[in-house]
């Protein structure tokens, strides 16, 4: 198990890649954007993107805005 920060909250997870983490946390949909430690991780990179202890993961979605 490793500890990562997902959208500002600490999580213990067994996921080894970003896409494993999304699945484990029940995130799905083609409208999500992800970043790890301040860098964009594109959709097609998620399956190969390794997660390590302390990574800061941001998962964003479209929202109302002006």
């Amino acid at each position: 198990m490793i500890r990562v920060i997902v959208n500002g909250e600490a999580q213990e997870c067994a996921a080894r890649t970003l896409s494993d983490l999304l699945t484990a946390l029940d995130y799905e949909g083609d409208w999500l954007a992800t970043a790890v430690n301040g860098n964009l991780v594109q959709r097609e990179e998620r399956a190969e993107w390794p997660l390590k202890e302390g990574d800061r993961v941001e998962i964003l979605a479209p929202m109302q805005g002006g």
Binding site: D26, Y27, G29, W31, L32, E58, A61, P62, M63, G65
Partner: peptide, 22 residues
């Protein structure tokens, strides 16, 4: 139209519903 991006809660579908609407 202008739209924004915000943190999606785990398992949340709010962003998806809004995306469809737009």
């Amino acid at each position: 139209v202008t739209v924004s991006l915000r943190r999606e809660t785990a398992g949340g579908k709010a962003g998806g519903a809004f995306f469809e609407l737009i």
